[in-house]
Write a protein that binds this DNA or RNA. Structure first.
Lengths: 153, 153
DNA sequence: ACGAAATACCACTTCATCCCACTTTTGAGT
DNA sequence: ACTCAAAAGTGGGATGAAGTGGTATTTCGT
């Protein structure tokens, strides 16, 4: 469980399926990670044509920053409104699945074939089709350069 | 119930309907949040072409902040006048609904299709049409930048 | 006392949740 | 590499809760 590094980290890509009721099983590796801190609770939100799943603890860190924003400023309110509007609480059931709320399914165009990707402190949920095309896009861009900068600067 | 994070938080977007008598059911998730502190009591007011619903406790906190404002400044007074004049107490009935007072319905142009949105410590009530157009407006703005700043600064 | 509106009460439909069964994959042990 | 056991992932039925619509009763202002 404790491994010397940063504690809550998700890695890897998994192909799962969304069942007829909109349920998605969370990769077992991810469940282990989640059970410690956030005890099976996730906050899922929309971003970049996919869904981002935050362990509850991680989400709370974000929320503390949000709490400091000036409440009645116009752009704050508009930001909060749309950011929160897609943020949904999800709990993992006894068999390790979540029910993906309908509006989120629609946003990310989830149908049957799903890709679940660990991305550092969160993980992402993609429709397979969208994932493939995003992958294609990324290979055109100079993603490599980003790595160069990170490692060698 | 107690979870280490900020206690009273509303999240997510729900599509509900206003019935012929002007009643609106509050999403069950929100009711749970409300039952703890404010015990089913809300204060609803008008803002940004929608209605803002405050749990009674949160409203009280707001009032304390208002008490600290310079009382006779012109724009303070006009803001307060607007804000208070439409502030209505609402209680949630046995089936989890509120009756939205008529003047408020008119202000927010509520007809049948309603969007209820959790926005941190309050939630908002929108007519679906107004919500959609607000959404369109916001996507033009640089809402994404706000997120960047929150996460990376 | 009357009409309008708010509240309480009840019935129906839909959907989330719970529970169990089945198949596939993984991994340990020989 | 093969076998077996355990775990992971998938599917579906049953149950209960959530949301919606309507009728009856009460309250309020006039």
């Amino acid at each position: 469980m404790v491994d010397g590094g940063i504690r809550v980290v998700f890695r890897g890509r998994y192909e799962h399926t969304l069942d007829s009721k909109g349920r998605l099983s969370i990769p077992a590796r991810f469940r282990e990670t989640l059970s410690g801190d956030s005890d099976g609770r996730l906050v899922i939100t929309t971003f970049d044509d996919c869904l981002i799943a935050y362990p509850y603890q991680e989400w709370c860190i974000l929320e503390e920053r949000i709490a400091a924003l000036p409440e009645f400023k116009r752009d704050t309110r508009s930001f909060l409104r749309f950011f929160y509007s897609s943020a949904s609480d999800c709990t993992i059931d006894k068999l390790g699945r979540i029910l993906v709320p309908q509006p989120l399914r629609e946003y990310a165009k989830l149908e049957k074939e799903i890709i679940v990707v660990g991305v550092f402190k969160q993980f992402e949920i993609w429709s397979k089709d969208m994932w493939l095309s995003a992958e294609k896009e990324a290979s055109k861009d100079e993603t490599g350069n980003m790595l160069d900068r990170l490692v060698f600067d």
